[in-house]
Design a binder for these strands. Structure first.
Lengths: 248, 248
DNA sequence: GGGCGAGGTAAACGCCGTTAACTCAAGGTT
DNA sequence: AACCTTGAGTTAACGGCGTTTACCTCGCCC
């Protein structure tokens, strides 16, 4: 109704506002409650106005998930500082990830359990520069894990046990080794060449698989019987993973 | 428009029909495409008619997820027969679970990654008899896992390694031990008392956590870099899990 | 033959995403 | 000063959605 008042608060201020409101809806009521009309309503605006900022609801959700990743990255980066040794840092990041996921289940579901539909990805992700072979979505977050994994790998190379790595897997992991090397390079993290062995990549994958798996299990409440000990189970998994990795 | 033709095909035939159509929509286009109006349209019926069968869309989705679990259970039960040794059976079930999940990602997402909302659970799950402390949703599926885990636990008890089980976890797992014992009893599976040690429960939880985790990771495409070796990684995880469990 | 219940209908309400045509003030150009 | 462009917003509308309400209409049973 009032063009003037809105005018001075131009794109630079209303766009973050949209995101903020959308985020609130996501947190409080879940993904499907993030509605163009609901956002507009909260802002005292009509829904079609939002199309000045996003080409569709889907794109808004995608941007939102990017925001979520940025926040999560910041949080994890912060927790990373908590550790003294490199292993402590890794633990801190893992715990931070779990805590965040449990505190933000809807955001977790949006980012980590939305079946990134085959065709859906193309039109919704106009990231400025998308180098192929990299984590397409949310590389911000990928960097955090690189920053914590890198030093660990560099350090762990000395005493890393051979780890039972099936031969056929070693072969197949070559591509991943290259990808990972590029990612580290792009991030300015220097890793000795030997540290990027197939074993190391395999180890990294296991860490991520178990971390993600256990957290998803917990967030989605898929424990077989009620497990009040989820926290301790998580801790136990961490030390297990560390000892399996030949760390400490 | 024609009440007569529909009449003779009464509840007993149209209800499965509804489920069938709904299932097709779920498989082909995902959860959010399972729409009362779409189902009705396909059946040559109007949407409100469906309220004679389900009190809401949400309940239909819940029933649907039950159906999915029944089918999955049947498939896993079938794959269970593939193994000679007990361990082989477990492997077969795990592989079956993974294969099924990859072939039915939408169903997997519905059943295993729908954030069973705190309040949502109450009204949508009027299961006939819901013993507390049991897997509230989809116990059919739980039984399959019991049937495959039971013998393994009974057999594994002899040489099971102590497994590094933190003391505080042992205490906390007592409830789970009781739950599990009841479940086995209810299922008519006899397990020697010593086989249900805290270590065994812990082992069981680890199996499920890693199985679920790795499968979810794969289904949701959350591998850090593209992993063409997912299948081999899975196999590797299985043998790792088995050796950690002191099996074979 | 009259009630009745099960399974269906049409109409409506209020949401939703999205499009199209519009207003209207700000700012720059001539 | 007059003019045009542009960007942020509007209103109106379309079709789809879940859901409720009132109604109909068979087949069945007493």
């Amino acid at each position: 109704m009032d063009g003037v008042a809105r005018r001075e608060s131009s794109r630079s201020t209303t766009e973050p506002d949209i995101r903020r409101r959308a985020r609130n809806l996501l947190v409080r009521e879940g993904q499907e409650a993030v509605t163009l009309r609901a956002i507009a309503r909260e802002m005292g605006i009509t829904a079609p106005a939002l199309y000045r900022y996003y080409s569709s609801r889907e794109e808004l959700l995608f941007r939102l998930s990017e925001d979520v990743c940025v926040d999560l990255s910041a949080e994890l980066t912060a927790s990373m500082r908590d550790g003294a040794t490199q292993l402590d840092k890794v633990f801190a990041v893992c715990r931070g990830f779990r805590r965040w996921a449990l505190e933000h289940p809807r955001e977790f579901a949006l980012v980590f359990a939305t079946p990134t539909g085959a065709k859906a990805g193309e039109k919704t992700a106009p990231t400025e520069r998308d180098a192929p072979g990299r984590p397409e979505r949310h590389d911000e977050l990928g960097r955090v894990f690189l920053r914590v994994a890198g030093p660990l790998m560099a350090e762990g190379v000395a005493e890393s046990p051979p780890a039972s790595l099936p031969d056929e897997l070693r072969v197949g992991l070559a591509d991943s080794q290259r990808d990972l090397a590029e990612s580290f390079a792009a991030e300015g993290i220097e890793i000795p060449r030997e540290a990027l062995s197939a074993e190391a990549v395999y180890l990294l994958l296991r860490w991520w698989a178990r971390l993600y798996g256990q957290v998803a299990l917990e967030v989605f409440g898929q424990f077989p019987f009620d497990v009040s000990e989820a926290g301790r189970l998580f801790e136990s998994m961490l030390v297990e993973l560390a000892t399996e990795s030949g760390l400490r």
